[in-house]
């Protein structure tokens, strides 16, 4: 009971928002067509789940998110680590990342559509490009900041190159790698929704634009609620993985 009360106090702001929202609906300050009550939105969201609309679209979006994200991680982490080890590679690659970092890369998406079509390929490429930057940069800066003392100590104790890498450098860089991954995964989800809204025939972003064409606000809001829940869960997932594998932090 006491725990429940504490929980209520901690999350009171959310409750106030819900109350304020329902009051606006109840007093009919905004026309109901534009401002549906939250209970109605939840009912519609539940309908979307039971009628299979969610099952039809969510896996497609998640596939794009994870494919792009995984590709970026598989390419980005080794690239970042190698950049910190090899001066030549760093000289070649660093300028591209410094120049490309502040540029809004999504603007390339319409051109990618021309090259790769409207299907998953262009979306996964876009997600890959967008995720690559935070992963590479965080890995690179993380591994350049690994204490020299650790490396010297390992070398002194007779560790060979691969041992130094696997036993010292990689674990010491792990927290920074996860910082990059934690920025990249929500980004991947945002880009997936965004590119699906620009043009797609399936996926959560498509579902959202499809629903908004019906001009029924409760349906659109239900989609937003579902997207919010998925985004929140993705965040939670990467945090749990981090806690499991970087437990020493």
């Amino acid at each position: 009971m006491k725990k429940g009360w504490k929980w209520l106090i901690e999350y009171q702001s959310l409750i106030w928002i819900v109350v304020a929202w329902e009051l606006v609906v109840f007093l009919q300050i905004m026309p109901e067509r534009l401002f549906p009550s939250l209970s109605k939105v939840l009912v519609v969201a539940f309908e979307l789940i039971t009628t299979g609309m969610l099952i039809d679209n969510l896996p497609i979006t998640l596939f794009r998110v994870f494919a792009g994200f995984a590709l970026a991680a598989v390419v980005g982490v080794p690239l970042g680590l190698l950049m910190s080890r090899s001066k030549l590679l760093n000289d070649l690659v660093q300028p591209i990342f410094s120049l490309g970092f502040p540029v809004p890369r999504v603007a390339l998406y319409p051109i990618l559509v021309f090259i790769l079509g409207l299907g998953s390929a262009s979306k996964i490429t876009m997600i890959f490009l967008e995720c690559l930057f935070p992963i590479v940069l965080n890995t690179y800066y993380g591994s350049t900041r690994v204490g020299k003392l650790y490396l010297w100590a390992a070398q002194n104790m007779g560790a060979n190159r691969s041992q130094v890498f696997w036993r010292v450098l990689l674990p010491a860089t792990m927290p920074s790698i996860f910082t990059g991954l934690k920025i990249a995964l929500p980004m991947a989800f945002i880009i997936a929704i965004l590119t699906e809204m620009i043009g797609a025939t399936a996926g959560m972003g498509y579902l959202l634009t499809y629903m908004s064409a019906s001009l029924m606000q409760e349906k659109v809001l239900a989609c937003v609620v579902l997207i919010t829940v998925v985004g929140y869960l993705l965040n939670l997932l990467i945090q749990k993985i981090q806690q499991k594998y970087v437990y020493w932090q």
């Binding site: 989800f189 809204m197 629903m211 908004s212 937003v224």
Partner: peptide, 25 residues
């Protein structure tokens, strides 16, 4: 601490999803 839960919930939402709603409003 009062505003923290709102930030936690709203931060990971792809805000672009709100575009259709804002457009109607």
């Amino acid at each position: 601490t009062f505003f923290q839960p709102i930030v936690d919930v709203l931060n990971p939402v792809p805000k672009i999803a709100l575009l259709p709603i804002l457009m109607v409003w």
